[in-house]
Amino acid sequence: MTDLLPPLNKRLDVVDALRGFALMAIVILHSLEHYNLYCIPEGMPDWLNMLDLGVWETTFFLMAGKAYATFSLLFGFSFYIQFRNEQARGGDFRRRFAWRMFLLFLFAQFHSLFYNGDILLLYAVAGLLLIPVCRLKDKTVFIIALACLFQPFEWGRVLYSLFHSGYTPLSDGYITYKQLALPVMKDGNFLELLRSNIWHGQLYSNFWQVEHGRLFQTVGLFMYGLLLGRRQYFIPSAQSVRRWRTVCTVCAAAFGPLWYIKESMGDMLHTAGLDRLSVPMDTIVMSWFNIAFMGLLVAAFTLAWFRTNGLRIQRFIIPYGRMSLTNYITQSIIGVFLYYGYGLGLYKTTGATVTFLIGLGIVGLQLFWSRRWLARHKQGPFETIWSKGTWLGHQRNRA
């Protein structure tokens, strides 16, 4: 296949724009959740409670699980670009990428001091699995990724439970650490929050992610992102347009049945006397539903970009996506100060409507800062540290 990807070090605007919109959705979701400090304020008028319910359900239906999945897909794509660029220079990026994931682990530790909903640690661990597959054939990578998205661990629990009626699969190991973290989030001072997040907060976050299928899902999406790069899905061409239309068709066809199964599965399992299977089956179906919805959204976004060379709103968000690591970490620092007890304590008084607007405000502030920063610098602050650290001691850095 002819390589139509841009020259080395030239970015793809459509990918930055897509990453920016995914991060924007993540910020809004975190704000609605009060950054894991879920609370419905009391004493609000009925009309506001109804509005809050509509905002909450609509936002989570459109964004929850889809924004994270998009972010994961683009992480794998970025790995391919870095691997391809170093290969074009005559180098091998695999060892350097392993070091890069260690640096991401350090970023995760810093981020986790403030917010116990970090995903960077999961990315640092799952990212290592790109190394052994990055030279395999497309078909092989596709099959491995599909096996991961199949959620083999959850299916194993389903099968074990079918043959052992006394076994009930659970996904509440994270609850213990959540209960230890909550009092500090509500009423602790800043130093108490740091101490809590060093241990309890990280266990809360990472147990939740593993117990809700995020590990296998992340690995699978990373690999599909790698394939999107190989197959040049984000390069405008007649072939890539056809491919994204196919993605739209497949995901749209899967969306309806998966939505129906998601909504009715509890009743079906109860009727069959298999309530004990609800936890792993919920994880499996919700994961597939979110991926199908995400695929539909990403395909529509990319096709709109190809048709117009980027809508104005798509291009407007590019700087936000270019500084995704910096903005991801700093939005947590801002958000926990706004909502937690050591800061403004807004979790007590803000419902979904207000927190949605606050989330948009955080995005707007960061977008303004991103545009100003990138007018003077090539990368965001944390992106610069990560890039220089990745190539530390390498001839490329000295050059």
Rank of each mutant, 00 (worst) to 15 (best):
T59W: 06
R89E: 02
Y68R: 10
A98R: 07
A64W: 11
T70M: 10
T59G: 07
L104A: 12
F102R: 01
S78C: 07
F97G: 00
Q82T: 14
L74V: 07
G91E: 08
R95W: 00
I81M: 02
A98S: 12
G90P: 07
F83G: 02
E57Q: 15
F71P: 05
L73I: 14
I81E: 01
A64L: 13
F93C: 00
G76V: 02
R95K: 08
G90S: 08
L62N: 14
M63F: 15
Q87G: 12
Q82L: 13
A64P: 11
K66T: 12
A98I: 03
T59Y: 07
Y80M: 10
F79H: 02
F61C: 08
F61K: 12
A88V: 07
F75Q: 05
W56G: 15
G90T: 07
G90V: 09
L104D: 04
Y80T: 05
G65L: 10
L103F: 01
Q87M: 12
S72G: 11
L62E: 15
L73W: 10
L103V: 01
R95Q: 06
Q87I: 11
Q82K: 12
F93R: 00
M63S: 15
F60H: 15
T59F: 09
A64Y: 14
I81Q: 01
T59N: 09
R96I: 03
A98V: 06
F83I: 01
D92S: 07
E86W: 01
L74M: 09
F93N: 00
S78V: 06
G90I: 13
F102D: 00
Q87V: 08
R96L: 08
F77Y: 10
L104S: 08
T70W: 09
S72N: 11
Y68K: 10
F83W: 05
R95S: 02
G91F: 07
R84C: 06
K66E: 13
F75K: 04
Y68C: 15
A98W: 06
R94N: 06
M63G: 14
Q87W: 10
Y68A: 09
R94L: 05
A67C: 13
Q87S: 14
L62V: 14
